[in-house]
Amino acid sequence: MEAIITQQEAKRHPMDNLLRMDRMPHIWCPGCGIGNAVSAFADALDKLEYNLDKLCVVSGIGCTGRVAGYIKVDSFHTTHGRAIPFATGIKLGNPDIKVVVISGDGDLVSIGGNHFVHAARRNIDLTVICVNNFIYAMTGGQVAPTTPTPAYTTTSPFGNFENPSNVPQLAEAAGAVYVARWTALHMRRLTYSIVDALKKPGFSVVEVISPCAMYYSRINKLGDGLDMMKFYYDHSIIKHGEPTDHLEIDYQKEIIVGKFVDRERPTYSESMGKWFED
């Protein structure tokens, strides 16, 4: 063991230049899947060999909202739900910058739902990574727009009766050019999906199903993070190109994952450039 400690001083973590290691350990709970999403994102950047000086990460509020603070690129931690419009401003202000929005389901689909829809409609060149843990975790486990029926949360103590959002369907309907969904354990596939999404010009969405070991799991008695991770992975069915209206997630049932949408649409900048050329 001593030998390992000396080596560990000598050798650096391969993501050292991608993550703010001076801020580790991060704030996420044990068994949380957000770290996996960050890991996949960092790995995707590594694979892409992207110029990190020209990359910018914008996050909203919430557990996943803290991602921006851990990635060693120009990063903004903005207000609740407004990561996408802030990112839109950056993208239009300087089109050379690749802007990535990493935020949670509550941030992107609930309070930022309108911004999500309109950024997709305009097809602004953003990559959105939506970490979906079915709950508002940072505020203490309230019911989220993605909470499946009839899961318990602190604000739905008799079970949730609302219909949950289907993020890929919302994204496709609004006009996203790339939509994929993976669980937080499909690390390699998730990484390649993020690579594809980053390469794709236009509004691309990658949903990551992540366990919330602290709130969602405890109140629903689903075990710890590992149990949930295992459950999501074992109950996921890879169906590429599945129509997005089949992608609703039922409580503790199978989750369809894969790449669902990959299409071409002119981006906002392209359309604008073309318009003013004519």
Partner: peptide
């Protein structure tokens, strides 16, 4: 975690990817 069968490690890197705390590589 503790390494018990280091001879079996094939450098697949999955532990590094799957670690949410960036604590293993």
């Amino acid at each position: 975690p503790e390494v018990v069968h280091e001879e079996n490690c094939r450098y697949c890197g999955f532990c590094q990817l799957v670690c949410p705390d960036f604590a293993i590589f």
